[in-house]
Nucleic acid binder design. Structure first.
Length: 875
DNA sequence: CCGATCACG
DNA sequence: ACGTACGTGATCGGT
């Protein structure tokens, strides 16, 4: 028996929208409803394996029902923008999959679905009718199954209704179900119904009389007087309601089952569409090895010295060459791609060793520009520090859209070349690099060559895009040169004293177990203090401390909550102390220890494509969050030391973000404030509160400082009130006074939001962009967030640009002046140099000059500089 | 694998 | 009324 699946498009999309948590792709498009829809569709297809499939849409769907709202209010609510924008995208996606869609002016999707279902039944087919709406239950029969998916908590369960199931659940058959609805009415569908008759009465009446016709024939037998009278007076309304509630299963339109026949939906177009939506886990449905035959025809594996020589010779004659290094645990080889479309994977074998390939690549870099992804990880195979010889497509992709979670060559191929290349897992599953090479050498060659091919071809596209976006200088003068600085920093690492780090950790243990015992005693039971869940239960249920729920999962036990509870019970202070020590032990003492290398140094990774604002980040371990604010934690810095004969020179910018704000806003008052060369927070307090400078109290200074912070973060009265523990109203007054004092700042922040709304992104002084898709959200929270982002990003981002420039200049100076001292760390506004003792004066001078010269602003860029025999001393 | 927490700028 | 400061990463517990 042939099988047909029919889908109520808008209804399922609507269900998915409210059932799936908010999702956005990196372009800022909301995708949660599409995701939910496709999930349901694919699930049903796999379950039913139908012969035919059709999705029906209402032609005009100006309004939509919000499930919960609707149940309560019974009215329609306009379709939210976040859902509306997904409708055309879903249709495009379905079209790309080759799914048959139906929509017809003047017909509701219900009528289309009902009609097709009945026709299919006549043809002797089995039918599954998928809808989020119970209205469709009236067309259920022995062969027409109505399926209602329910998405709750990420899982989709489907309720199935044949005619008998409808009767079992609603006590009426599908035909009578129409009349049931007619009697009770449905405001959402504009079905008036009979007054006084609700769901319960309607069911009773239908059970008793079986049909509307019969009900009115024996209307005097209706027991309840008020209901009986209402039925009689509203007879016309009842029949009108029935007409409205009835799905027209005999609608006039042409429908060809052949056009709806199911074929392979996993087309190339669909793959591209899914990629664009960033539905990574749905991509697994696609068959592996999508062919790009015209491209892969030029791919070749090389394991012969003479041929390799020819290829590297050719590379030296080209203007630009794409390359990829295949290395992870083992070294598999290097792929090279040329402008004529030829690609070669030169395999690590025989005479083609790692050293040979390194020599050849170093030579090639002198003659051709080498294009690749993630150049930083390639430098160890290419002895060349002239970054003009390279182009990193991953870095370029990051600059063009810094909001993505990760950047891969496959994504670059898809986004900028419209090319799909199979993912590693699709080709090799969980095999390691070397395993894949030995078991599937030809497949591996394809993979390697594609990486190089995409690097070369995407370079042309990306360079143009950067140019159009005004970011080519940022790329060439800042980001590319920085790659080598970061590479050097990673190579250098930072020396630690393993024994002292160990001792630091050991010193914590005693106090930690002492606190542990005290906490158990105070709680009256042993439990896991590290579990917020268990801790919450102890504090709020067992000990009955005041303060209720805060998080979705239960009680909040965050530090700011506990601090307020400290006077209530001894245990609270102990927990806070325990937490602090446990953090130091696990993350810093024990955590850092595992990263100490053979050379007694820690080599962190500096990531250049992570942050939305342009900052760099540090991982494995993170050396940008070593304790500083609390003395005990700060002591950890004593284990970070310079090597023998060296000292540390540490320089940090003084309030770089506020100074950048002064410059970018051009506010005369703020610029003048900085020219006074005095404590900026005190000046702010003096000017904002109209008090002589010398009479500013500590509290007033503290408040002014918080306001300054707030401005940089994208001020909001609520945020400031939290930061200062004052009322929102007071905070609003501070802000108002601040803006009255510095009108240029207000104007600048307003303009930033305005620009972001118009252009969709904000920019830094050096042209770096950050898209702000949240600004077009209809959700207040999201939109407010977007406004703060629009205010903060130009400031934080410009500061990131400035210190990057400083790093490049400092690095260059150290090298040019042939100093042994090395830049080893960056912590957002701070640079740390391992300084040879004899070079201390020079290093100090270089840091001072290059950091303050990194940008020419309306105010001076001042730095604080310290020297010491460990990081604690130097900071 | 996610959320809560907390370390930094 | 909505319920938050901006940007990160590591660890832990709990599903």
């Amino acid at each position: 028996m042939e099988k047909l699946v029919l889908i109520d498009g808008h209804s399922i999309l609507n269900r998915a929208f409210y059932g799936v948590p908010d999702l956005t792709n990196s372009a800022g498009l909301h995708t949660n409803a599409i995701y939910g829809f496709l999930n349901i569709l694919l699930k049903i297809l796999e379950e039913e394996k139908p012969d035919y499939l059709t999705v029906a849409f209402d032609v005009k769907a100006p309004t939509f029902r919000h499930e919960l709202y609707n149940e309560y209010k019974g009215t329609r609510k306009p379709m939210p923008q976040e859902l509306r924008e997904q409708v055309p995208v879903l249709k495009e996606t379905l079209a790309a999959m080759g799914v048959k869609m139906m929509e017809k002016a003047g017909l509701e999707a219900d009528d289309i679905l009902g009609t097709i279902a009945k026709r299919a039944q006549k043809e002797g087919m089995e039918v599954s009718l998928v809808s989020g709406d119970r209205d469709l239950l009236q067309v259920a029969t022995d062969v027409i199954k109505v399926r209602i998916p329910k998405t709750k908590g990420g899982k989709t369960e489907i309720e199935d209704y044949y005619a008998a199931d409808v009767e079992a659940k609603y006590q009426v058959n599908p035909t009578a179900f129409i009349e049931l609805k007619a009697l009770m009415g449905d405001t959402a569908d504009n079905i008036p119904g009979v007054p006084k008759v609700g769901e319960k009465t309607a069911t009773e009446l239908m059970v008793q009389f079986g049909s509307l016709e019969n009900l009115y024939a024996h209307v005097d037998e209706v027991g309840k007087k008020s209901v009986r009278e209402s039925l009689i007076t509203n007879k016309e309304l009842a029949y009108l309601s029935k007409t409205l509630a009835t799905i027209n299963v005999d609608s006039p339109f042409d429908f060809s089952f052949e056009e709806a026949r199911v074929h392979d939906f996993y087309t190339e177009e669909a793959y591209v569409a899914f990629k664009k939506l960033e539905f990574k886990n749905l991509l697994s449905h696609f068959e592996k090895g999508i062919s790009n035959e015209s491209i892969t025809a030029g791919f070749q594996r090389i394991d012969d010295l003479a041929k390799a020589e020819d290829i590297f010779q050719k590379a030296c004659e080209e203007e630009e060459v794409g390359f990829a290094i295949l290395k992870k645990d083992g070294f598999a080889g290097i792929a090279l791609a040329f402008a004529d479309g030829s690609c070669f994977f030169v395999q690590n074998s025989g005479l083609l060793t790692e050293a040979y390939l390194t020599e050849k690549m170093s030579e090639a870099a002198l003659h051709t520009r080498l294009c690749c992804g993630d150049i930083k990880s390639a430098y160890r195979y290419i002895m060349c520090d002239d970054t003009q010889r390279f182009f990193d497509v991953i870095l370029a992709a990051y600059l063009l859209n810094p909001l993505k979670n990760d950047y891969t060559i496959a994504d670059v191929a898809n986004e900028y070349l419209g090319l799909m290349i199979p993912e590693w897992a699709q080709r090799f599953g969980k095999a390691s690099l070397m395993e894949a090479l030995s078991s599937h050498p030809e497949e591996f060659t394809q993979h390697a060559c594609f990486l190089a091919y995409v690097a070369l071809k995407a370079t042309l596209v990306l360079r143009k895009k950067l140019e159009e976006a005004g970011m080519l200088t940022l790329m060439n003068e800042i980001e590319m040169p920085l790659t080598y600085v970061l590479y050097d920093m990673e190579q250098e690492g930072i020396l630690v004293k393993p024994e002292e780090l160990k001792a630091y950790g050991a010193a914590l243990v005693g106090r930690i177990s002492e606190l542990e015992q005290r906490i158990y005693k105070e709680a009256g039971t042993e439990f896991n203090i590290n579990s917020p869940k268990q801790l919450g239960e102890i504090l709020f249920d067992r000990l009955k401390l005041p303060g209720g729920k805060k998080t979705k999962t239960g009680y909040s036990t965050a530090a700011d909550v506990l601090e307020k509870l400290a006077p209530e019970h001894m245990i609270v202070a102990d927990v806070l102390e325990y937490r602090g020590l446990a953090k130091l032990k696990s993350t810093y003492a024990d955590g850092l220890y595992t990263f100490i290398g053979e050379d007694n140094r820690i080599h962190s990774t500096f990531n250049q494509t992570i942050t939305a604002t342009g900052r760099i980040s540090s991982t494995d371990p993170n050396l940008q969050n070593i304790p500083m604010r609390m003395e005990l934690g700060r002591q950890i810095r004593k284990v970070f030391v310079p090597k023998e004969g060296y000292i540390f020179t540490d320089a940090d910018y003084s309030q770089i973000e506020l100074r950048i704000l002064a410059h970018m806003s051009g506010d005369g008052q703020l610029i003048d404030a900085y020219k006074m060369h005095a404590d900026i927070h005190r000046i702010t307090a003096s000017q904002v509160f109209h008090i002589p400078f010398d009479e500013v109290t500590d509290l007033q200074r503290r408040n002014a400082k918080a306001v300054n912070f707030g401005i940089v973060y994208g001020i909001s009265s609520f945020g400031l009130s939290q930061g200062l523990s004052i009322t929102k109203k007071e905070a609003a007054e501070y802000i108002e006074k601040y803006f009255a004092t510095y009108p240029g700042v207000k104007n600048f922040l307003d303009q930033a939001v305005k620009d972001a709304k118009e252009k969709g992104y904000v920019t830094t002084l050096f042209g770096r962009r950050r898209p702000v898709p949240e600004l077009s959200s209809s959700n207040f929270m999201q939109r407010s967030f977007g406004e703060r982002v629009a205010m903060n990003s130009p400031i934080q981002g410009t500061a990131a640009d400035v210190i990057k420039i400083a790093m490049i200049k400092v690095h260059r100076r150290l090298k040019e002046e042939k100093l042994a001292s090395k830049l080893i760390l960056q912590v957002h506004d701070e640079l740390l140099i391992e300084t040879k003792k004899e070079e201390a004066d020079k290093v100090r001078q270089i840091l001072e000059e290059e950091m303050s010269r990194a940008a020419q602003l309306a105010v001076r860029l001042e730095i604080d500089l310290h020297e010491g025999n460990d990081w604690y001393e130097a900071k």
